[in-house]
Design a protein around this nucleic acid. Structure first.
Lengths: 133, 133
DNA sequence: TATTGTTATACTCTATAACTATA
DNA sequence: TATAGTTATAGAGTATAACAATA
């Protein structure tokens, strides 16, 4: 079970990376962009829990994304210890492409899978994800 | 879907690492030990496809496992470019503990999941894993 | 010539702890 | 004092390419 889970994750991340090779993004960077794609501004802490990455990783991920011009960090006027992270126009474009690639990948992979199987998958994934809590 | 998959993998690997913290093993090391636990000898190449790790990673993983006395590399007399990797007695003990922890984790996490959901999960995981092929 | 595995290099992710600037 | 993020450091996985030994 756990082995199957790992294999599937590994394979999808790799397939996604191949599809997005032209964009020159790592899995973490894609993850952050995909999370910001809804247009909502987030603090670094929120982004960390949404993407399940450590603040120490986020710092460098956001540094790279900012250098590429996809993301901005602005001081939060309400709490000047923290930042509001948001997408630039370029960032929105790239995030959209990443999201489209992920959706296309899912459609392709799951074309022959029944809705019942999908529901089962979601139930198991949720159960496994909650073990760590 | 892909996000759910990633989250579940992340959480289970983390939970497993916590349970096995006393053994001082990384996820890759556990993966290798679990694969060798059936007692079958493997070449590095076979081990690489079984564990989905690159030869370059395996070299260092096996170096660490050998240093800890869990694994041996012996020249294959039939093809002296390659090695036969096998568990030592200590290695068998640790591999057994790792496998038991993984099974216990699954039992705990999936106690309330139906067989139908499990079957669905397997179908989806298999479909996703085959995308990369 | 091709293949097995190692080595070298460079980059990313992670964990931990020390540090800053705010609160 | 406590919290949000950053920086520093060190370990681990990955990709790529060059390499030795063997086939």
């Amino acid at each position: 079970m756990i082995l199957a889970l790992q294999r599937a994750t590994h394979a999808t991340l790799h397939a996604l990376a191949v599809r997005l090779a032209g964009l020159n993004l790592t899995a973490s960077e894609i993850n952050v962009l995909a999370n910001l794609a809804d247009g909502r501004t987030r603090s670094i802490g929120e982004l960390g829990s949404d993407t399940a990455t450590k603040p120490t990783t986020l710092t460098s991920v956001l540094d790279r994304l900012a250098r590429k011009g996809y993301v901005t960090r602005e001081l939060d006027p309400a709490d000047r210890r923290s930042f509001r992270v948001s997408l630039t126009a370029d960032g929105r474009g790239v995030a959209g492409a990443a999201r489209a690639a992920a959706e296309d990948l899912e459609r392709t992979a799951l074309a022959e899978v029944s809705d019942a199987d999908l529901a089962g998958f979601r139930a198991v994934a949720r159960a496994l994800a909650e073990v760590s809590g």
